[in-house]
Lab assay of single mutants.
Amino acid sequence: HITLTNLITEETTHVVMKTDAEFVCERTLKYFLGIAGGKWVVSYFWVTQSIKERKMLNEHDFEVRGDVVNGRNHQGPKRARESQDRKIFRGLEICCYGPFTNMPTDQLEWMVQLCGASVVKELSSFTLGTGVHPIVVVQPDAWTEDNGFHAIGQMCEAPVVTREWVLDSVALYQCQELDTYLIPQIPHSHY
């Protein structure tokens, strides 16, 4: 019994991606959610070859190996599938703050939850000092008015990073160091 759908849910078992011959794909929301959820992320060749051979072929032979941004053979989907007991964002409290493009905020929040993070909706909701690490995620190029994202640091004691930190961490299924993704914050004294 196979159901085809464009939506990823808890029940989804396989995410089928358009890939090149070496099982490398573009980074899409579907790709990120498939990895975050520990699903099989496979090339569409799995479907076409299975139909051709009239049997369901082994997914291992068709698993996506990499993507056009993070590298052609990083094995993120395999790492995620085999590490669902070791979520990459466990112990983190993440607030997805401000506008985002090409990806609804609720989907970004679901993605970080699938990776083990707790989501907070407001900067004031962080449970500071409880052994949980707060992180604010923003997408600077989605902000149309002044660079308000440079002043988020005044509203909460949390590192502010770009959305790329989430996307790179999920694609590779390895929590990336914050340093290269940090957004400089204007210190309090400048006000």
Results as ranks from 00 to 15, higher is better:
169 S>C: 09
49 Q>C: 11
4 L>R: 02
18 K>I: 04
11 E>Q: 11
185 Q>W: 11
169 S>M: 01
7 L>D: 13
90 R>Q: 04
91 G>K: 13
104 P>H: 15
38 G>Y: 05
110 W>S: 10
103 M>E: 04
27 R>S: 03
49 Q>T: 13
24 V>Y: 03
168 D>K: 06
24 V>L: 05
69 V>P: 01
108 L>P: 00
2 I>T: 09
3 T>V: 04
72 R>E: 11
173 Y>F: 07
167 L>T: 12
166 V>P: 04
126 F>S: 13
59 E>F: 10
68 V>P: 09
153 G>S: 06
31 Y>A: 00
131 G>R: 01
110 W>R: 04
98 G>T: 03
8 I>R: 01
116 G>S: 11
58 N>L: 12
178 L>W: 15
49 Q>K: 15
119 V>Q: 11
74 H>A: 02
123 L>R: 14
1 H>F: 08
156 C>F: 12
163 R>Q: 03
42 V>Y: 00
136 V>L: 14
72 R>K: 06
165 W>R: 01
41 V>S: 00
124 S>W: 13
84 Q>V: 14
134 P>A: 04
89 F>L: 09
11 E>R: 06
178 L>Q: 04
170 V>G: 03
32 F>S: 01
135 I>V: 12
38 G>K: 13
42 V>R: 04
124 S>P: 06
123 L>M: 08
186 I>S: 08
4 L>V: 06
66 G>V: 00
14 H>P: 01
145 E>V: 14
21 A>S: 14
170 V>E: 03
186 I>R: 15
189 S>I: 14
61 D>R: 07
39 K>N: 04
156 C>W: 07
95 C>L: 12
49 Q>N: 09
154 Q>Y: 11
176 Q>T: 03
81 R>Y: 00
181 Y>E: 03
46 W>P: 02
149 F>M: 05
143 W>L: 11
45 F>L: 15
94 I>P: 01
104 P>S: 07
36 A>Y: 01
96 C>A: 01
114 L>F: 07
126 F>W: 06
18 K>S: 14
99 P>A: 08
21 A>D: 06
129 G>W: 14
85 D>Q: 09
6 N>R: 11
71 G>V: 03
78 K>A: 14
2 I>L: 12
143 W>R: 06
103 M>V: 11
117 A>S: 10
5 T>L: 14
78 K>V: 03
183 I>T: 08
189 S>M: 13
55 K>A: 10
11 E>G: 08
178 L>S: 06
174 Q>R: 11
94 I>Y: 00
86 R>F: 11
83 S>V: 08
171 A>P: 11
11 E>M: 08
132 V>I: 09
145 E>W: 14
123 L>T: 14
88 I>P: 04
190 H>G: 12
73 N>P: 03
178 L>P: 05
69 V>A: 09
189 S>P: 05
51 I>C: 06
165 W>L: 02
91 G>I: 01
73 N>A: 03
15 V>T: 02
17 M>N: 01
23 F>T: 01
143 W>S: 09
185 Q>H: 04
159 P>A: 14
108 L>K: 01
51 I>Y: 10
86 R>S: 10
151 A>T: 11
97 Y>F: 05
130 T>P: 15
89 F>S: 03
109 E>Y: 06
76 G>A: 04
83 S>W: 01
82 E>N: 08
79 R>V: 12
6 N>P: 08
8 I>C: 02
163 R>L: 05
43 S>V: 00
41 V>T: 06
3 T>C: 14
88 I>K: 03
39 K>I: 11
11 E>L: 07
26 E>L: 15
155 M>L: 04
171 A>T: 07
132 V>M: 05
96 C>P: 00
70 N>M: 13
74 H>F: 00
140 P>L: 14
23 F>P: 02
86 R>P: 14
183 I>R: 10
166 V>Q: 02
84 Q>A: 10
27 R>P: 02
12 T>P: 00
113 Q>R: 11
191 Y>A: 13
127 T>I: 13
185 Q>C: 14
96 C>R: 02
187 P>W: 12
51 I>F: 10
176 Q>K: 10
105 T>S: 14
23 F>R: 13
111 M>N: 00
61 D>L: 10
19 T>H: 00
147 N>K: 09
110 W>A: 06
127 T>R: 10
2 I>H: 11
111 M>S: 04
172 L>V: 09
75 Q>H: 05
187 P>R: 06
78 K>L: 14
159 P>S: 12
145 E>A: 09
186 I>E: 10
59 E>G: 07
123 L>F: 15
149 F>L: 14
177 E>P: 15
99 P>S: 12
7 L>N: 15
2 I>K: 11
127 T>S: 15
119 V>R: 13
41 V>R: 01
43 S>K: 01
188 H>Q: 11
98 G>Q: 03
25 C>T: 06
175 C>S: 15
153 G>L: 13
66 G>Y: 00
93 E>S: 15
14 H>S: 01
8 I>N: 13
110 W>E: 11
191 Y>S: 07
129 G>D: 10
14 H>Q: 01
92 L>H: 10
143 W>G: 05
55 K>Y: 13
161 V>L: 07
164 E>R: 10
